[in-house]
Write a protein that binds this DNA or RNA. Structure first.
Length: 952
RNA sequence: AGGACCGUAGCUCAGUUGGUUAGAGCGCCACGUUGACAUCGUGGAGGUCACCAGUUCGAAUCUGGUCGGUCCUACCA
């Protein structure tokens, strides 16, 4: 016997373990392959709403295609997440042992990270199981497992040998806190208020400007970088300065003579039209420097404080040993911001500070450290992306890869067509160490390991080699995800079978980080037998961000994060407050967060269960837009689960231990059965169409409406008069029981990809009654619509029935007739088909509308005093025998008449329009005419009623 | 600066190729525990589809513009 109410906790605990133990998640190795790669979450992270959303969609797809008989692989794994993980462990180390990673040394520190991974690495996979994710755990991978080491080395070495990876001294984004280079993508620019300082640079050798001044004025937002200036640039078209090009200025404070150059980069309209050029500390200046062969002077240490002496580098990146770049006394060792103050003060003292203006600027900050990023000259490894990008662009242009929704393709193209070389080296310890070795002269050798280096480059064992200290950008290894997980560089059966993968499900925020790079890497390394590059996936389904109910991004610092597990299990208010207010970056926010939490979740969060959460995500997944997560929504779907639960209880009560035609006994299907079966086929068609279009909202809505509004609201009610009628035939009763249980069983299969637990739980109870067998619903065939069972006649008949019932209920409601009171109904003005339908549906009508009697108005009979409703042209009369509230009924009729009058007017206007008649398609005109006729007929009837009532 | 997306009921959102009386869920109001379900049932109220102009016989839907919001990309020192 089933519990009276749906309790997700009880039913969700067992099934997952059963599925996993039985190996149901593994590919069947039969049928057409279908494969999805999970975007690997951070191995030490925990599940957030974005994951939960994404995993729901992937699991729905996986279960759907698995049930359709496809050979389905959902590949699971985790990412080592270089910077993020290293930072966590460093913070732990600082908090617990007051040590830095340098105190431990590389090897000991890495051991700590591996320990941390072992300790916390199970969290996210445990949570993934809670979500019901049907991933193949036997194939779980990690981006730093042995196979990935192999794949990463292979890719690096081959790209290097193909000249697609190179090393060089370049200006890169440097994080002065983390002491590593980062890629362009890891730099977030933020609006900040700053200043624009205007400095005078005196002209050397007595030269004067056209207007007689002996100095130029340059403006800068970064005064301290002037220590590294190597030129002043003006626009070549600028008449004001044309004669000064080739002359020099003397850099104040440092007293270095630097040239005035002409470069079209300079905007004549902005500021004074003179720009200080600091090639080593500004990306634009770097380009100017390269064009004009300016030396570059690095003035910063890795902390972005001032060096003892500038490091001079030629514009091609080679060391410049000829030029000295002394740094004035008082500056070395100063932090960049202290240096800025001192420079400004020194300029002021020298009388060279022209003015200071407020200036809105975009500060580049590291996405992990939050500090201002410094353009910095260092030796780094790069991927030359141009050659890789071309086929990757073409694949999307040609439709080999399709984005859903399509608009993301533009975003992809825009980025790919303006791609800069990718800086892949990171000065971290946690990650894939770069497979490059150096001898004492600094010559570089790239191979899979030291042994191979020696043989490849014929280096004697006596020559000392040391490996590059740097590791690779995390995204370098994740770019290999689709093929690395399938055993590449070996040409495995899995690689042949499941690659290219079917669909990638991901957020738009990592299209550049991950999706684009996967496409480039995959197409370069994975080829068909005929040599054609393989794409990593055929479709990219891009979903939106999960936001809070107000539309704000969920973040720890705002204290508005919802934990999917809390929505599943529920959480009391106090622990929720504690959870949201602990470990804040800014503890002063705690009070505000606590207040907001207490008001939004006064009762804590109820336990809604995984199925309700998943169904909520599906219903919100419309067109790749961001979704605002409202707890009211999940409550509604928890109620839906309860509805299914209770429908199943009803079905079991009426079928268990009884004959439901399991053994092909003869049975009869009545109108109601034909109707619900017909509606089921239509729903199956809708769901199929929706899933094919990745419209999970439409799929879930179709299922919801079918189960609640058709099956529960109507069919279960329609089954009662039959099952409880002693006079009904055994065949009809059997047909009803059979339909009850089979439609339920089919609906469960239809819903299973979206709500796996409750469907499995109930399916196990009804499968035999429905004539099915098997260990799990997971392996049952997905319902396929049978168009021949779509039954327009049954549908019309039941729609008629519903119309009459609704009319009676409406009268009851409006006339305030107790639902408990059985009433008499008279039908009038009907045609033959109405008469046939009453005949067919009379017993339903009696029971569902709670009638005392129903009959047709006789031909010569005058209609009694009654409340009236129309069903098509037919009148439904509820005689009120003196009890009628005259005013109420007149008001009710008046409302109806007003509505019809408006409709009539609209239609008459339309049909009176010559050009509508002549230009609109005939079918449309005919339809409008029919509508007008219906409206006018109804109007006439209602008016007749009004005059009758008024005449009392 | 360029681009994308969005603006529909109190809230969250659907609305296919232009032809609906513009829908759903939640919330709201009224009534109701009849033998699946009060995590329920029945009925009801609630919309100038942001605004303006255009195309069209016909616009929530197509075009242009205005206003408001979100986001991305690139930035001028």
């Amino acid at each position: 016997m089933m519990e009276k109410t749906y309790q997700p906790g009880q039913i969700e605990s067992q099934w997952y373990a059963f599925w996993e133990e039985q190996g149901f998640f593994k590919p069947s190795q039969q049928g057409e392959p279908f494969s999805i790669m999970i975007p690997p979450p951070n191995v030490t992270g925990s599940l957030h709403m974005g994951h939960a959303f994404q995993d729901t969609i992937m699991d729905a797809l996986t279960r759907y295609y698995r049930m359709q008989g496809r050979d389905t692989l959902w590949q699971v794994g985790t990412d080592h997440a270089g910077i993020a993980t290293q930072m966590v462990v460093e913070r732990k180390l600082a908090a617990e042992e007051d040590k830095t990673r340098h105190d431990l040394g590389r090897e000991a520190f890495l051991n700590k990270v591996w320990e941390w991974k072992a300790e916390s690495g199970g969290t996210i996979t445990r949570q993934l199981r809670r979500m019901g994710a049907s991933v193949d755990w036997s194939r779980e991978r990690f981006t730093m497992d042995e196979g990935f080491y192999k794949a990463v080395q292979e890719v690096f070495v081959r790209l290097y040998d193909d000249k697609l990876i190179y090393r060089g001294k370049r200006l890169v984004n440097w994080d002065p806190k983390l002491h590593t280079a980062i890629s362009d993508l890891e730099v977030i620019s933020e609006d900040e208020k700053g200043k624009l300082w205007h400095f005078r640079y005196p002209l050397a050798n007595g030269v004067k400007t056209a207007d007689g001044k002996d100095y130029l004025v340059v403006a800068t937002t970064r005064p301290e970088t002037m220590l590294g200036d190597t030129a002043v640039a003006v626009n070549p078209e600028d008449d004001r300065y044309r004669d000064l090009v080739g002359k020099t200025v003397v850099l104040p404070v440092v007293n270095r003579e630097i040239p005035i150059i002409a470069d079209s980069y300079v905007d004549m309209e902005f500021g004074t039209g003179c720009v200080k050029i600091t090639p080593a500390h500004d990306f634009n200046d770097y380009e100017v420097g390269k064009r004009n062969q300016l030396p570059m002077i690095n003035i910063f240490t890795i902390d972005a404080s001032i060096r003892d002496e500038g490091e001079v580098v030629n514009s091609d990146g080679t060391p410049n040993l000829d030029m000295q770049a002394a740094i004035p006394a008082g500056y070395p060792g100063l932090d960049r911001y202290e240096a800025r103050k001192k420079i400004v003060a020194d300029f002021e003292a020298l009388g060279y500070l022209e003015e200071i203006k407020d200036h809105a600027l975009k500060a580049p900050r590291g996405d992990r450290s939050g500090v201002v990023i410094e353009p910095y000259l260092t030796d780094q490894w790069f991927v030359a992306v141009k050659a890789l990008a071309e086929p990757a662009i073409k694949a999307v242009e040609d439709g080999d890869i399709q984005f859903v929704p399509k608009q993301y393709e533009n975003m992809y193209f825009a980025w790919m067509r303006d791609l800069q070389d990718w800086c892949i080296s990171r000065q971290l310890w946690w990650g894939h160490r770069i497979p490059a070795w150096y001898n004492d002269q600094g010559n570089v050798y790239v191979a899979r390991n030291e042994e191979e280096v020696r043989s490849k480059y014929s280096i004697d064992a006596s020559v000392a080699l040391h490996q590059d200290e740097d590791v690779l950008d995390t995204w370098f290894s994740s770019a290999l995800w689709t093929f690395g997980t399938l055993g590449w560089p070996e040409n495995t059966r899995e690689l042949q079978t499941y690659h290219p993968t079917s669909v990638l499900v991901t957020g738009f925020d990592i299209i550049f980080f991950w999706v684009a790079r996967m496409i480039m890497m995959t197409m370069h390394f994975i080829k068909d037998e005929d040599g054609k590059p393989q794409v990593p996936f055929k479709t990219v389904y891009v979903h939106g961000l999960v936001r809070d109910s107000q539309g704000a991004k969920m973040s720890k610092s705002k204290g508005n994060v919802l934990d999917p597990i809390d929505l599943i299990d529920g959480i009391e208010l106090e622990p929720l407050v504690t959870k949201r207010t602990s470990g804040l970056m800014r503890p002063q926010d705690a009070q505000k967060i606590e207040k907001a939490t207490r008001s939004e979740f006064a009762e804590g969060i109820a336990s809604y269960g995984t199925d309700a959460l998943r169904f909520t995500f599906c219903s919100l997944a419309s067109t790749g837009r961001d979704i605002k997560f409202d707890v009211g929504r999940i409550e509604g779907y928890r109620n839906f689960c309860n509805k299914i639960w209770n429908a199943a209880r009803y079905v079991l009560m009426n079928t268990e231990g009884q004959d439901c035609g399991q053994n092909n006994e003869s049975y009869e299907l009545g109108l109601a059965e034909r109707w619900i079966i017909s509606r089921l086929q239509e729903t199956e068609q809708q769901v199929e169409k929706a899933v094919a279009a990745f419209r999970f909202d439409q799929a879930s809505q179709a299922i919801y409406e079918f189960i609640w509004n058709e099956y529960c609201d109507w069919y279960l009610e329609l089954s009662k008069p039959v099952l409880w009628d002693d006079a009904a035939s055994a065949e009809l009763k059997r047909g009803t029981r059979r339909t009850l249980v089979r439609v339920l069983e089919t609906a469960l299969r239809m819903a299973h990809p979206f709500m796996p637990y409750i469907t499995e739980e109930i399916w196990q109870k009804v499968k035999e009654l429905a004539g099915k067998s098997g260990p799990t619903i997971m392996q049952q065939p997905y319902p396929v619509a049978d168009a021949s069972r779509i039954d327009p006649e049954a549908a019309a008949s039941i729609e008629w029935l519903k119309g009459v019932i609704l009319a009676v209920r409406n009268i009851r409601g409006e006339m305030d007739i107790s639902p408990a009171k059985a009433i008499n109904v008279i039908l009038a003005q009907g045609d033959d088909s109405d008469r046939a339908r009453l005949q067919a549906n009379q017993s339903f009508l009696m029971k569902l509308a709670k009638l005392e009697s129903i009959r047709w108005l006789a031909a010569d009979e005058e209609a009694p005093m009654a409340a009236t409703q129309l069903v098509g042209a037919m009148q439904v009369l509820v005689p009120m025998a003196g009890l009628i509230d005259k005013e109420a009924e007149l008001a009710r009729l008046g409302k109806e008449i007003d509505k019809l009058l408006k409709e009539q007017q609209r239609l008459q206007g339309k049909l009176g329009n010559e050009s509508f008649i002549s230009k609109a398609p005939e079918a449309v005109v005919a339809k409008e005419k029919e509508k007008l006729a219906d409206a006018e007929a109804a109007l006439a009837q209602l008016r007749e009623q009004v005059s009758r009532i008024e005449s009392i």
